[in-house]
Design a protein around this nucleic acid. Sequence first.
DNA 1: ACAATACCCGAAGAAAGATTCGGTATAAAG
DNA 2: CTTTATACCGAATCTTTCTTCGGGTATTGT
Lengths: 120, 120
Amino acid sequence: MYERKIEENLDCGIYLASKVFGGKWKCCILDAINRGIARPVDIGHYIPEASKRVIEMQLAELLIYGMIEKQSDDTYPKKSEYSLTIVGKSILPLLAQMDEWGLTHAAFVKERMTVSQNPL
Amino acid sequence: MYERKIEENLDCGIYLASKVFGGKWKCCILDAINRGIARPVDIGHYIPEASKRVIEMQLAELLIYGMIEKQSDDTYPKKSEYSLTIVGKSILPLLAQMDEWGLTHAAFVKERMTVSQNPL
DNA sequence: ACAATACCCGAAGAAAGATTCGGTATAAAG
DNA sequence: CTTTATACCGAATCTTTCTTCGGGTATTGT
């Protein structure tokens, strides 16, 4: 079984928050589910750049953290549906603000990145 | 020179934002500088868990992105001082909110993590 | 001279995270 | 009976990020 090597600081709010929704596509997944895109296949179509596997893994994480919940009727082909929990919904305003900050300052940041030659 | 393999999407505000302040200690560094802890040595003392090197690297990144600026009078031993730029200050409310969200839901998340046996 | 201090940098390797590929399960449709 | 569809999981490999260690520079104090 996998065991983390480097200690975590879950008492830092920012650290905990970024653990919960800091994966490569978690924000997009939450956004998709919030828009009613409930099933893994459809989330995959909504975010075509993300690999199928990472969506599965991050859905699993979000489930563990209690950000989303799953309804899975056992008809076949399986049709799992995910929805946001109350706690899951509570981060949406935060994501919206991050997005807004990013879009507002995108030009500034890009400018700075090209001026200094470093590719970060 | 290091070259990124995987394409980035800098047009997503969240992606850009997390690129700018998403490193392991960038938030803490910004917090420190905001509190007037201006010099690398002192930042290091303020965040003893962070390695010296990562602080240097993340300071350099924040400088490139224009979140902080450097005053370096060339007396010796060198005394560089960092301060937040206007743009750098503009993310502070966001960080405060992330921290608040994290602290508010820390107990919930930790509970969920222990109930499901997975160590993430 | 020479240590001490403070900042910065490079490079090797470890750790975390993502990607890729393959597999399981089940039932309905062809 | 074979194919198709959907969800999920495991493992190898690759990419990115962090750690660790060492070095360089230039001044001040001994």
